[in-house]
């Protein structure tokens, strides 16, 4: 039996799905970690990106910070934080938040600053206040680009949350670590398939939300 057949067999076995270490509970853990990380990162990165975009200055700093964050190896950060803060949820969440900030920040900044300055000028000349310009013009027009950042961050976080298992936390990474420990390659393959499937499903959900929130006037067709 080759690895793929074994993987299939493992998926087909109802016992793999249920119970404390089963697929369902690992999926829920994985989603929970990812959600927490994305939420924290969004609360930090989106307002900063949006405000810098609105002011149309300081863009270089945003691009620089995002670039620097991208260059950090998440596994290295995790190790560093774990040594520093100790095991537990804080260290990996911190490391992953730093990972997620870059795409969220650049998405929000790029989206808002790309709004045609003529449109913003016209809105101001009609008598919109700065807050109204932000909420009624810049954000609605920037939705597609901001969502691009959110989807990007989500994909990266879903893929990288697997490292939580290194420090004995749950999530889909457990199948990878545990499978490696007993040389059960089929379970490692299963782990990757599950993470990829989860990422695809979430991306589809976010794509749907993006479509709902974007005005039809922003699409390039007709």
């Amino acid at each position: 039996m080759n690895v793929l057949e074994q993987t299939w067999k493992w998926f087909a076995d109802p016992a793999s799905w249920t119970g404390a270490g089963g697929i369902w509970s690992r999926l829920v853990e994985h989603l929970g970690y990812s959600g927490l990380v994305l939420l924290i990162a969004a609360v930090i990165a989106l307002p900063v990106g949006v405000l810098v975009g609105h002011r149309r200055s300081g863009g270089n700093v945003v691009v620089g910070v995002a670039g620097a964050l991208r260059a950090l190896p998440t596994l290295g950060l995790l190790t560093l934080f774990a040594l520093w803060i100790g095991l537990g949820l804080t260290a990996p969440v911190l490391a992953l938040v730093l990972l997620a900030i870059a795409p969220l920040l650049t998405g929000a900044y790029a989206g808002v600053s790309a709004v045609d300055p003529v449109v913003v000028d016209a809105a101001r000349a009609q008598g919109l206040t700065e807050w109204q310009i932000l909420t009624r013009v810049e954000l609605p027009v920037a939705v597609p680009v901001i969502f691009g950042g959110i989807r990007n961050a989500t994909l990266q976080v879903i893929a990288t949350v697997t490292i939580m298992a290194y420090i004995d936390l749950g999530g889909l990474g457990r199948f990878l670590i545990d499978g490696l420990a007993v040389r059960d390659y089929s379970r490692m393959v299963a782990s990757m398939i599950l993470a990829a499937a989860l990422a695809l499903v979430l991306d589809a959900v976010l794509a749907g939300a993006q479509k709902l929130l974007s005005s039809p006037g922003l699409s390039k067709e007709d």
Partner: peptide, 18 residues
């Protein structure tokens, strides 16, 4: 003040999402 007077410029500057 701006709401009390109309303003038209070279490019229409319409809001693309509305």
């Amino acid at each position: 003040l701006r709401r009390s007077m109309g303003y038209v410029m070279q490019q229409a500057g319409l809001m693309p999402h509305r």
